[in-house]
Amino acid sequence: MSYLVLVQNGIAQGLIIGLAALSITLVFGIARFPNAAAGDMLTFGGYAGLFAFSATHSLLATGLAAIAATALLSLLMYYAVFRRLAGRSAVSLLVASIGVAFMIRAVLGVSFGHGQLVYEIELTRPYIVGGVRVSPLDLKLALIAFVTLAAAFGVLYMTSIGRQMRAVADNSDLARVSGIRPQRVMASLWLLAGALTAIAGVMLGMKTIVAPEIGWEILLPAFAAAIFGGIGSPIGAVAAGLILGVAQELSTPLVGFTYKIAVSFAVMCAVLVFRPRGLFGKAEAVR
């Protein structure tokens, strides 16, 4: 029974990691750098959601407010920083994103203090499904995560801007000579990346606490999932996030709470050694 509880927690944790990993893998595939600010964007989403939740006590309003605020922050980051560095090396952009990450964290710390804040959620009686306790909140959060993921995949695979994003990820020069405007694609990418991290932040905040460091701590597992899933592969990032989340929780009885995060890295190292392209990695680009 206790294992089922761990799996359940693992799925919740895995959805958070998966959403963040999807944001990271999209930025990596299209803007071509590892975005270290993803974790702090997530934290920002957690705070935005917290204030919306205290004001409305509605999950829907909380999710939408967090998405709006974080997507806007993300767009601002693009116009203020990353667009100006377009064409620089991935390392320059990575370093810039680390700078942005520290700035977001500092602003949050100065504005709201370094203490822990919590979503004031009323406790509800859990459902008992086959002897396992399932909290209604967990179910709702999972539903929100699935809807967010479905919406993101819908944008990527069923809309014209999504097609353009995938084209830029394949070959940005060919995209330009196909008449695709890089700026429009980048702006859409950052809005989408922001929205994904926002929901991850709300979920993490509701499951645990809200504090300036929460995103930083999830950043490394999220990177691990992005790599494990095959960097640039959206479906891979989500699948790997779920696998890592469940693996972390299941290993807790064995390695203890403090070291469960190490499991992510053991998995990531093993992937890098034995399957460098990750679970869903693309085959070598043609020609």
Binding site: Q164, D170, R287
Partner: peptide, 18 residues
């Protein structure tokens, strides 16, 4: 070289042209 979008379908390669 690299004159098509490899991860897009044939149809998408044409649809994506703006």
């Amino acid at each position: 070289v690299a004159n098509v979008f490899p991860s897009l379908s044939i149809k998408e390669n044409l649809q994506v042209v703006a």
